[in-house]
Design a protein around this nucleic acid. Structure first.
Lengths: 207, 207
DNA sequence: TAGATTGTTAATCGATTAACAATC
DNA sequence: TAGATTGTTAATCGATTAACAATC
């Protein structure tokens, strides 16, 4: 069963609430309880959960453990994915230190930077290498995912090196549009876009 | 004319391409040129631009300067918005140093942190104060926007302090759901959600 | 006039919401 | 049996795509 982008974005939110409920010792959760915790409509929850294949019981709710397992599978949290990160600036080191990623199955196994003074360090458990060694290191490690946090003007070149190293997907935190082969999946994470949306909404609300 | 979320997210992308074209000395851009640069369909560009109210000329294209001015207005980049930031950890300092925000009209006028050793510094031009002074400082400055980059377990409390200080909107970088008055706009920026979407897509493509 | 490009209307697609039947 | 909750079908809404008319 395929999930649309919107439904997909809700899955990790359900997961978070369900883990909280599991920690409290609950075994079942109603759609209404999940909806309430997230501030969304119960029918949305029922539709989403129906598509996971996990069946609820009327008057009882959905089995939490089963839902967690299935949602972890759907969000990729049940397996480890090796990643490399290029660009150990402020944002790059913030991502290296982000504790939640590990829980979602992301293993950043190597980082790269152009500045010699940032190389041969270990940041948050991840060794930092000179960017010149990126292609060979990614090839050797076989990491399928590249995280791009370099300055925008270097983004295309480093992306190409990642592709040469064999990554199948790039998580692009730069505003640059990347020209890479079709089979390489690029997900853009653009704070400037988010800020523009936020500022527009603030304006709209003031009007 | 109201923009939906999707259309709204494309506006800053048009803006970026148009600024680039303006820098090259171009005065007009066709919808097809914009579409090509962004990898989207020309009809989407025409629809979006039609809603800005800027009219194009057949065989010529859209007037770049006029479009830029209108898109800056729609994305809030034509006015300054004062913001305060709470939580000067790795992510918080990354945001303080992000050069693009300034260009979009965001002025982070004060930052706050619970750790004394991070207070009374100036980071990327922004002074850092003890979080205990947040309410009074925000009241004094009149900043309408709060940026929340504290640990998740402190998010609710700091959000309440921001609201007490009078912010009208919160840009929430924590995974916490915030319970604030309805009139306070909350925009969530959840990297865990993005990562889940990315991992799902990687899995899907491998299947 | 011919051709390229904008602008618009209609069709399609996907997501959300409403209504209600099924089930424990 | 009654009532609460799940599951599903139909209606609505919004965004995208297709087709084509209008314009320079």
């Amino acid at each position: 069963m395929a999930f649309g982008t919107q439904a997909l974005q809700r899955l990790p939110l359900y997961l978070r609430v369900l883990r909280e409920l599991a920690r409290e010792g609950r075994a079942y959760a109603s759609g209404a309880a999940l909806a309430g915790a997230l501030g969304i409509e119960p029918v949305v929850v029922r539709k989403d959960l129906a598509r996971t294949g996990v069946r609820g019981t009327p008057r009882v709710g959905f089995p939490i453990a089963e839902l967690i397992a299935e949602l972890e599978r759907l969000t990729g949290a049940d397996r480890e994915v090796m990643a490399v990160l290029a660009g150990v600036g402020r944002l790059g080191s913030a991502l290296l230190g982000y504790p939640g990623f590990r829980r979602q199955g992301l293993r950043i196994v190597a980082a790269f930077d152009a500045a010699p003074e940032r190389c041969n360090l270990v940041l948050a458990g991840t060794p930092v290498f000179p960017v010149a060694t990126l292609v060979e290191t990614v090839l050797r490690l076989g990491a399928p995912l590249g995280i791009l946090t370099v300055p925008a003007e270097r983004a295309q070149r480093v992306a190409e090196q990642m592709v040469a190293g064999g990554v199948r997907a790039i998580w692009n935190f730069t505003p640059a549009r990347l020209d890479v082969p079709d089979e390489v999946l690029v997900q853009r994470e653009d704070l400037a876009v988010s800020l523009a949306v936020l500022l527009h909404r603030i304006q709209e609300r003031n009007a």
